[in-house]
Amino acid sequence: MQLKKINTFEKNKSLGQHFLNDKNILKKILNIHEDLTSGTIIEIGPGMGSLTKEMLNKNAKIIAVEKDIRLKESLLILKKSWPSNLELIFGDALKIDIPNLGNKPRRIIANLPYNIGTELLVRWLEKPKSFSSITVMLQKEVAERVIANHKSKNYGRLSVLSGWHWNAKLVFTVKAKSFNPPPKVDSAIVYLAPKKEPVIPVNLNTLSKVTHALFSNRRKMIRSGLRKIGDPDIISSTTGIDISKRPQQLTIKEFCKIALFIEKKIK
Rank of each mutant, 00 (worst) to 15 (best):
V202A: 12
V202R: 09
V202L: 10
N203F: 05
L204S: 14
N205G: 13
T206F: 12
T206L: 14
T206H: 10
T206P: 02
L207F: 02
L207I: 05
L207N: 03
K209D: 11
V210D: 03
V210E: 05
T211Y: 07
T211D: 09
T211Q: 11
T211S: 15
H212Q: 15
H212M: 14
A213F: 05
A213Y: 02
A213C: 09
A213I: 01
L214M: 10
L214F: 07
L214S: 06
L214W: 03
F215I: 06
F215S: 06
F215K: 07
S216T: 12
N217V: 13
R218P: 06
R218D: 08
R218Q: 09
R219F: 08
R219V: 09
K220F: 01
K220Q: 11
K220R: 13
K220T: 00
M221F: 05
M221D: 07
M221Q: 14
M221Y: 05
I222W: 03
I222D: 04
I222N: 04
S224C: 12
S224A: 14
S224K: 15
S224W: 08
S224Y: 12
G225F: 00
G225T: 00
G225W: 00
L226C: 06
L226H: 03
L226V: 03
R227S: 12
R227H: 07
R227M: 12
K228E: 09
K228I: 03
K228Q: 09
I229D: 01
I229G: 02
G230N: 06
D231L: 02
P232N: 11
P232S: 11
P232K: 12
D233E: 15
D233Y: 09
I234C: 09
I234Q: 11
I235P: 05
I235Q: 06
S236V: 01
S236I: 02
S236T: 01
S236P: 03
S236R: 04
S236Q: 04
T238I: 12
T238C: 11
T238A: 13
T239P: 04
T239M: 12
T239F: 06
G240M: 04
G240E: 07
G240V: 08
G240S: 10
I241Q: 09
I241V: 10
I241W: 05
I243M: 14
I243F: 10
S244H: 14
S244R: 15
S244Q: 15
S244V: 06
S244K: 15
K245G: 04
R246E: 08
R246N: 08
R246G: 10
P247W: 01
Q248E: 14
Q248V: 00
Q248M: 11
Q249E: 14
L250N: 03
L250H: 02
T251W: 01
T251A: 02
I252Y: 02
I252R: 05
K253Q: 14
K253F: 07
K253Y: 08
E254Y: 00
E254T: 00
E254D: 02
F255K: 02
